[in-house]
């Protein structure tokens, strides 16, 4: 047997792309469970249907592009996109909404740019924003949480998805929406009047956010990503909220805790902002990237047109990531310049 001629390094670490993706999938489980517990099976149906479509679209795109689908499907990245979009979509979304979103995410945002690793924008967020722009009504109607309204069962969830005409969804404004629309009540009074609110933030929302936080912390522990971008984002949101929270007047923007535990804050911080492909690369770059996402999220939430803003903020910062990289290059060993050491 001839000896193999390969160049160093010969050893390889245990990590693989598909393992990374699988761990990200696993880390979403607590959040999905909490969402299901509070809002019913809608999210689960979303995820299941989105995953099916995403894998088919991915296989189709790979085939069209002349790549072996078997090998590339193995990286599980399409599944991650599908799960993230499925979580972000309102529960009890009709099938065509999910289909359009997945098509935009997989075909347009991912494969038109060259597939995994080449996409400048987060596919799940592109899908979400396409839907949000095109179908504002469907995209802003969220189901009421358990405790504030009736929660449909699995069968109804399936009906809502596949025969949207036969299902009259009960919807209720999200806490962020309620706060945004409010211009007369003190925050304390608003809290007392609206059934959506829970202990610190929205009913259900606070627990979903905490669950996503837990999943994110687990990923941090597994060293799937670094703490820089999420922590920077959360810190800036909290800071902005603290700055603009004037004790809870009718014009205030909600307390820091409310913002941290509302909407897609934790989900975005640990599952969207940490998407490596579309974020900045260096440590300093990730701090800047995360901080600016946080800033944009707060600005759009409080001063913009949309109640939640993680998707917009992330897409805008996706644009900026290459520039951030350009200006935050680490100082190479043995080179003079800013940075530590020497």
């Amino acid at each position: 047997m001839a000896l193999m001629r390969v160049t160093s390094p010969h050893a390889h670490g245990p990590l693989s792309t598909s393992a990374v993706m699988q761990q990200v999938l696993l880390a979403t489980v607590p959040g999905v469970l909490v969402l299901t517990a509070f809002f019913g099976f809608g999210t689960l149906v979303n995820i299941a249907f989105a995953a099916l479509l995403a894998v088919s679209f991915e296989a189709l795109a790979l085939k069209l592009r002349g790549r072996p689908p078997g090998f590339y499907l193995g990286d599980c990245s399409a599944l991650v996109t599908a799960v993230l979009l499925g979580i972000a979509l309102p529960p009890y979304s009709p099938w065509w909404l999910i289909a359009v979103g997945i098509a935009a995410a997989i075909l347009m945002a991912k494969h038109l740019y060259g597939g995994l690793g080449y996409n400048p924008f987060n596919p799940a967020m592109v899908g979400y924003v396409v839907l949000l722009i095109s179908f504002p009504v469907q995209m802003t109607s969220w189901a009421p949480p358990r405790g504030a309204g009736e929660v449909p069962g699995l069968l109804e969830a399936l009906r809502a998805c596949f025969t949207p005409g036969s299902f009259d969804a009960i919807t209720m404004a999200t806490p962020l929406d309620v706060l945004k629309q409010n211009d007369a009540l003190l925050v304390r009074d608003l809290w007392a009047q609206s059934p959506q609110f829970g202990r610190w933030a929205g009913l259900g929302w606070e627990w979903a956010n905490l669950a996503f936080l837990a999943g994110g912390l687990w990923l941090l522990y597994r060293r799937i990503f670094t703490w820089h971008a999420p922590v920077a984002m959360l810190a800036v949101i909290a800071l902005m909220a603290a700055l603009f929270y004037d004790g809870g007047s009718s014009a205030s923007g909600g307390s820091p805790l409310f913002h941290l535990l509302s909407g897609a804050t934790m989900f975005g911080a640990f599952f969207i902002v940490t998407d490596p492909v579309t974020s900045a690369v260096s440590v300093r770059g990730r701090l800047v990237y995360g901080a600016l996402v946080g800033l944009l999220v707060y600005l759009i939430r409080v001063f913009g047109n949309y109640p939640d803003a993680v998707a917009f903020a992330v897409l805008i910062m996706n644009f900026a990531a290459p520039f951030i990289d350009q200006y935050t290059q680490p100082r190479t060993y043995g080179h003079a310049g800013t940075g530590d050491g020497k």
Partner: peptide
């Protein structure tokens, strides 16, 4: 080799602080 997902693990590991 699969596509680079720009995970940045290499930048973290690089002893010369390269990208």
């Amino acid at each position: 080799a699969q596509a680079c997902i720009r995970c940045g693990l290499c930048a973290e590991a690089c002893p010369a602080s390269l990208l």
